[in-house]
């Protein structure tokens, strides 16, 4: 770590950081305060920062107001499988970009960027028709496949960048020792790339965990809903159950936050080589 003298600039930077953190966290603090209010208190005027009665029971009721546990489980399964599928495809592709020359390499890179230029909203019709043709509508497998595909571009770039930062000599030594290309990848490169694997895996996971529009279009049976769909059901036609909505939203954030905290060090390390090279 660098040792700046703790001069004015040091304090200014920290003060600035404090302001940004405060503004970023403010909506979630107020979401928490909202989630702990009884319904009657949501609309008192003028609005207050803290509930008068703390309705802790909201966090219990919300699990029965809608089948939240079911939605959480669906989301876990979909997100984990989408992440694994994403990784299984991104690792060889990223490695090929980093280490191998092959015809169409440039085109492949550009095509990946192109996939990011279409908002999912624009792709809905085509996605729906495709899933219809392969009989996967209203099946969570359709979400697994779609999420894995849509987060692939990022994972591939990211891993490619990291793989490039690994000295090639190590692999060459391994291959002279009789390892195949795949053997070198699996036994040498991957173990050295833990931070990047973790970071890109988390990106894929979060992408899947938070996606809404595609799930809305594919899924119809209530039991197949993912968490974002479940949360949306608190936005009713005539009224919004803000307290339950906020409680469910906060519940949805917790697993992601824990994941982030677990990998925070790897995240920066992974980004370091992955994004900068």
């Amino acid at each position: 770590m660098k040792r700046h003298e703790r001069g004015l600039s040091w304090w200014l930077l920290l003060a600035f950081l404090a302001v940004v953190v405060a503004v970023s966290i403010f909506p979630f603090a107020f979401a928490l305060s909202t989630s702990l209010r009884p319904r009657a208190e949501l609309f008192s005027f003028p609005p207050t920062w803290f509930p008068k009665t703390w309705a802790w029971e909201n966090f219990v009721t919300v699990w029965t107001a809608v089948p939240l546990l079911r939605y959480v489980l669906n989301s876990v399964v979909v997100s984990v499988l989408a992440t694994l599928l994403n990784m299984a495809f991104a690792i060889p592709a990223g490695y090929a970009l980093a280490r191998l020359n092959f015809p169409g390499k440039r085109l492949f890179r550009q095509a990946l960027l192109v996939t990011q230029m279409f908002s999912p909203v624009v792709l809905l019709i085509g996605l729906f028709r495709f899933m219809n043709q392969v009989h996967l509508l209203d099946n969570n497998a359709s979400l697994v496949i779609t999420y894995a595909a849509l987060s692939l571009a990022f994972s591939v770039w990211f891993l490619a960048g990291y793989f490039e930062s690994i000295p090639i000599e190590i692999e060459e030594a391994a291959m002279m020792d009789g390892c195949t290309r795949v053997g070198a990848l699996v036994r040498v490169v991957l173990p050295m790339s833990k931070p990047a694997l973790v970071a890109s895996g988390v990106f894929a996971f979060i992408w899947a965990w938070n996606e809404f529009m595609i799930a809305l279009t594919f899924i119809s049976t209530p039991d197949n809903r993912t968490l974002p769909l479940g949360i949306y059901s608190f936005l009713g036609q005539y009224s919004v159950e803000w307290n339950y909505l906020m409680a469910a939203a906060l519940i949805a954030i917790v697993p992601v936050l824990i994941l982030f905290l677990l990998i925070e060090k790897n995240l920066v390390k992974g980004l370091t080589a992955g994004a900068v090279k």
Partner: peptide, 10 residues
């Protein structure tokens, strides 16, 4: 995932 995908629904 592949097997999940193969079982279809509708």
């Amino acid at each position: 995932v592949a097997s999940l995908a193969a079982c279809g629904t509708s």
